[in-house]
Design a protein around this nucleic acid. Sequence first.
DNA 1: GTCTATAGTAAGATAGAC
DNA 2: GTCTATCTTACTATAGAC
Lengths: 232, 232
Amino acid sequence: MTFPTDRIGDTSGRDPAASSGGPGLPRRISTGQILRAAETVFASSGFGGATMAAIADAASLPKANLHYYFGSKEALYRAVLEDILSTWLADADVWIVAERTAREGLEGYIRAKMAWNRSRAEASRIFAGEMLAGGAHIKHFLNVELRAHVTRMETVFAHWIAAGAMRPISTQHLLFCIWAMTQSYADFAPQMESVLGRTDGLEAVDYALGCETILSLVLGGSGAVAVAGTYR
Amino acid sequence: MTFPTDRIGDTSGRDPAASSGGPGLPRRISTGQILRAAETVFASSGFGGATMAAIADAASLPKANLHYYFGSKEALYRAVLEDILSTWLADADVWIVAERTAREGLEGYIRAKMAWNRSRAEASRIFAGEMLAGGAHIKHFLNVELRAHVTRMETVFAHWIAAGAMRPISTQHLLFCIWAMTQSYADFAPQMESVLGRTDGLEAVDYALGCETILSLVLGGSGAVAVAGTYR
DNA sequence: GTCTATAGTAAGATAGAC
DNA sequence: GTCTATCTTACTATAGAC
């Protein structure tokens, strides 16, 4: 993917701060501040609702600096998305691999996804918001990277199913379900807080119980673990 | 809940169109046009990204009419939300009732939720967007109506669990999972389209297979139906 | 009730001093 | 590289003719 942040290279040779702490240090500090602030503001207001002024305030920098580093609101948004997408696929490569058992792989993947959505709730919300808006900014990611990623995972699932470690269910839709359930603990937190009576955000026990519930459904429903007892 | 649309009553006696097809007919026609257009625009752009001009265009009406009927963008948004929330709770009262079996109730509820999310995908996206933004506009719905609704459903689940028709899992989190999975077929459609290689929207078979997958996980994972065969 | 024209304001973006 | 001041546009909202 190519993003406006690529123009970082354009300034070589005219960075006066390069002598005070390493090459492009102030730039890295400022862009980092801006990206973090932008993630917070885009997460709570959406792309349309966010303003450069609000992001500048959150970053404790003048508005002009945002344009200096990122060019436009649109470009800043793309840079934030880029940051998010680069970590979105990581967990699967660790857990959904043929060397693991179905149970171990699915459990590890779900726990990793839950942890990601909890620690990067704002990133999760930006990703969700982009999807709600049609995903136009991340079409390449969805059509190329994500699709290849899923194709690879499917071969592992096929292996597990052939080995009798999983029921023959649609592994594409299984993934959609896992993503939906884990993401909802970031994206739909207000709903959960109301239902659970939490006035100060979800608590550790909520994430834990949520994770166990998701594991019950996925592992039990996919046949990766036997459901204890007789129910009907 | 009280919303600006309540001022519909304020105009009694000064509606010149009352004589051409019933009381307030033009008003009902215009407000209906506006609400439908607003749902489309708010769904694809979010509250902040939507503009009154875009909604007016979609409704084929001048911008001023929107303000005449709804007062402000904020009030129009609340009216749209009100419209959505009034139908969100309906399915549970039909399906999650003690007179049904766990299997029948859960299956009917999930199928109904899938149908709602498919037929009212834009409404689903607005609801999701509102949640991403923190849910400030629907706090009363979440804290009062939804919470009471869940409390009632929990008594039915407790009944099913006591009867040995379901495993003793967290029924609150079970609901979160069901909502997350069914909603994602509206909210995350772009992601699914990319993975499934659909260039022209999700197809009927996708919703059907998604529904079966969710049913497998929920019914199998909750113990409401036995998982056929031996897997491990 | 409907619509055009416009007021008033807020937002994205830039110029230019330092 | 940083920041203040400002340009320009686009938006919400309203006034007032019809």
